[in-house]
Structures are given as C-alpha cells and as structure tokens.
Amino acid sequence: MNTTPTDLPPPEGDPAAEYVLGVLDAPARREIEARAARDAVFARDLAVWEERFMPLLADIEPVAVPARVWEHLRAMVGGGAAASATRGGRPTGWWESLAVWRAFAGLATAAALACAVALVVLPGGTAPEPGAAMVSTLAHDDGSAGFVALIEPSRGQLTLTPVAAATSGGRVPELWLIPKDQAPRSLGIVDVTHSLVVRIPEAMLAEVGTDAVLAVTLEPPGGAPGGKPTGPIVAKGGVAVL
C-alpha cells in the first residue's frame, strides 16, 4: 500500500466515525451534535461507533480522583441549596408522598376544571405570575388520574408522580409538553412506578403555562424516534396554577 506522504485527495469521511474518533474541530463537532439531536438514525450511528471504539479504553489505567471532587459533588447532591430537597433518595418533600398525591389528584382535577371554567369566564384574567408553581392531572380517557405533575418554573423542574399508570408491549412512557397551537416537545422518558423529577429545558420554560397541555404517550424503548410522538396517548391534562 501507499504509505509515502504524497498529498492524496482524501475519500469522503464518515462523520459519525470522525466525531467519535475525535479528529473534528469545534464547529464540526457542534454540527454533528445538532444533527444527532434531530436525526435518530444518525444518533444511532454515533452510538454504534462509540461502542466500536470502547474496547480501546481497556488500555487506559484508572487513576483515583482526588477526594475534593466527590466533596463538591456531595454538596450538590446532599443539600445546601433548597433545590435539592427532592433529591437524596429520601422523600423529604410533601410532593414526594404518593398518598398525598393520590388524595390530591381528585382535588387537582376539580381545581383544573375550576380554572378551565375561570379561563372561559374571565379570559386573560388568570395568567400565572412568572415562576408560580402549577399542577396538572394527566387523566386517562375514562377521566381517572394517571399521573399528577407539579411544575416549578422557578426551579426549572417538573415532578411527575404516577397515580395509576402502566406500560404494555415493552413500550416506555414519554412525557410531552404541548404548547398552545404547537407541536409536542418531549420532556423525556418517565416512570410508571416512581415519582420523577424532570428538568425543563430553559428554552421550554416560557411555554409552560395554563394554555399548555401535558401528555404521556407509549413509545418504543429509547423514546419516540425523531422526537415526535408515535404511540397512543395514555394520559393527558391541562395545566393549572396551584
């Protein structure tokens, strides 16, 4: 083979392979990441290349990380900021109690209904204060509550608690925010057995309001391909100010 350093015209590159190998410059890397975010097939390609190269890491010796790194992380996980109250493996907030939520679900439905009525009667009169907490009861078709959601825009998070929810056929539940007159935006895969804190991306915070709808669909493992819901809606509900 030709190994003399003459300047040959290079063949077309495989962008996924080049990204994983690490030879691309910063702008090219951002392009690849943007493409992976909107193209599920390409994202799969990337994952395959990652798995292909992974065995090389067996050559790398582990090196103990200085203790201060864990100290920082522990501070983040364990406390300090009020925002970590729902973290830490112990149900410390009232919203973590399933019993409270189950009792609350009925009330929330009534409250949501009352709000809906108020919205009709008093148009524009009930816009939430910026950052105000909101709730949503995501109901099944028969009207029974499937999930309840506590939305805390000030913390950029949403706590989704299953009340009566199940999956079937190996599908996974995915949560969607549907802003008024817009396409659904995925909030990620959720859980039918445990309360889950979902981060609301900064760009989506402004779209969470009383004119939005939350919905859960059943999607293939890994989530809806291409970021668009494909499965049946198992529960949905409007958003109301707490």
């Binding site: 300047d7 040959l8 015209p9 290079p10 063949p11 590159g13 495989d14 392979a17 080049e18």
Partner: peptide, 11 residues
C-alpha cells in the same frame, strides 16, 4: 490530505 485519507480509509 494524506492524514485524512489514511484515517478515513482506516475507519
């Protein structure tokens, strides 16, 4: 160009 060729063909 040679480096690109080698790596791309190698991949």
């Amino acid at each position: 160009g040679t480096v690109k060729s080698w790596i791309r063909r190698g991949l």
